[in-house]
Amino acid sequence: MIVEDNTVPIVSKQKRGPCMQLRFGIHVGLQDTTVADVLGVARHAEDLGFDWVSAWDHFYPSSHADGGSLEAVSMHTALAAATHRVQCGVLVYCATYRHPAVLAKAAATIDQLSGGRAQIGVGAGWSAREHAAYGIRFPPVAERMDILEESATCLRLLLRQRESEFSGRHFQLNAARLDPRPVQPALPIWIGGAGEKRTLPTAARVADGWNAPFLTAAEFGRKHGVLREHCAAAGRDAGEIRCAANVGVAPDQAAYEQFIGTMSTIMPAGGVLRGSGAQLGDGIARYVDAGANQVNFAFRAPFDLTTLDAIADAMRTFQS
């Protein structure tokens, strides 16, 4: 059984399912920035009433060859230590970079550190450049999807059972224990991505949350429908899975061009909300109507806190 997380939610005026309430978060890119700046934007978001702060998992900037990117596990830990109320996650850890038992051990410790506010996401990975640079094998996409499903399954076992056994092609667990345990008896596990043949079925089977980055609201809604179909096929209540849309925000054309310039060339160019005020609120509402019960706003350095303030203003129109 999946246990609901213990967030303090923002309640939507939109019609929601029986359990899920609307949450808002920020998702911070770790390229070309400093620890102090990342923690500063996270604290500001918490002060403004956001529910969630997450970071990505990359070794290099996603959009250019030069520059640097902070490491995900250590920044996940720092975010947990620097905040007091928000849920803290990574969207998403790359399944080919870390053995799931090692990742589960880190997540349990971060949950202890945060007092029960850790969440963990995993994805199949896509950066061939990072794999090559660090000498990590970059399997074909079908094999990466197998690794993702096995990794998520192992994480679920380790984080929810006293002792775990698993024998897969890529990972094995032999009477594996995770002590000390996380504070949360069912630390939420997210699957990131929008692939309809493998990613969404995996999310339907093993995830507590599904995260899709930079889709238009219409495409998010269509993918959400596909996820629900996979849940039905798996005998799973789709209402158990929190569905998050990651979107960019650009108050003007210059901000839009700056944000698009920070994205990888393989990422879709949709999913960037334009304007501010009522226009921004209308954009958020389209994702909510499409099935999102969490909207994460992507931020890349240099961080513009005035944009964060504008999002918070629009966000409050959804509060009861």
Rank of each mutant, 00 (worst) to 15 (best):
L155W: 01
S164Y: 11
W126R: 02
H131E: 12
A132I: 08
R156I: 08
S127Q: 14
E163V: 07
L103N: 05
G135R: 06
T109K: 07
R98N: 08
A132Q: 13
Q119R: 08
I110W: 07
P100D: 05
A152Y: 00
C154M: 12
P140E: 15
G115D: 15
L158V: 00
Q119K: 11
Y134M: 12
H99S: 06
L103V: 04
A106N: 05
V102C: 04
G123H: 00
T96N: 02
A82C: 13
A108V: 01
Q119W: 10
R129S: 13
R137I: 08
P139Q: 10
V122D: 04
E165P: 02
G121H: 03
E143Y: 00
H84D: 15
F166M: 05
A106C: 10
V102K: 11
A106Q: 08
A133C: 06
T96K: 00
F166L: 05
D146V: 00
A128Y: 14
R117Y: 15
L148K: 00
A118H: 10
A133K: 03
L155I: 02
S127T: 01
V92Q: 02
T153S: 15
C88E: 11
L159I: 03
E143S: 02
H84I: 09
I147R: 00
G115R: 09
M145I: 01
A132W: 07
R156C: 03
D146A: 06
A95N: 06
K105T: 12
G121Y: 03
D111R: 07
C154A: 14
G115N: 09
A142L: 12
I136V: 14
R137A: 15
D111Y: 08
A95S: 15
D111L: 09
Y93E: 00
L148I: 05
S164V: 06
L155F: 02
G123A: 08
Q161R: 15
R117L: 13
S114T: 00
H99M: 11
T109W: 11
A104F: 09
G89H: 06
A124E: 05
R85F: 09
R162S: 15
G135M: 07
E165W: 11
C94E: 04
F166S: 06
M145G: 04
L148N: 01
R156Q: 13
E149P: 11
L103Q: 08
E130I: 04
V122C: 08
Q161V: 07
R85K: 12
L113S: 07
A118G: 02
I110H: 07
R85V: 12
R160F: 10
A133Q: 10
R162W: 12
R85A: 14
S151Y: 05
P140S: 09
D111T: 01
I120F: 02
A107K: 13
I110M: 05
S151C: 14
A95W: 04
L158K: 01
R129Q: 15
Q87P: 00
L155Q: 01
Q119E: 13
I110R: 02
E143I: 02
G116L: 14
A101V: 05
A124W: 01
E165G: 12
A142E: 14
G115L: 11
R117N: 11
Y93K: 02
A142C: 07
Q87V: 13
R144D: 08
A152P: 00
R144N: 06
L158Q: 03
V102T: 07
D111Q: 12
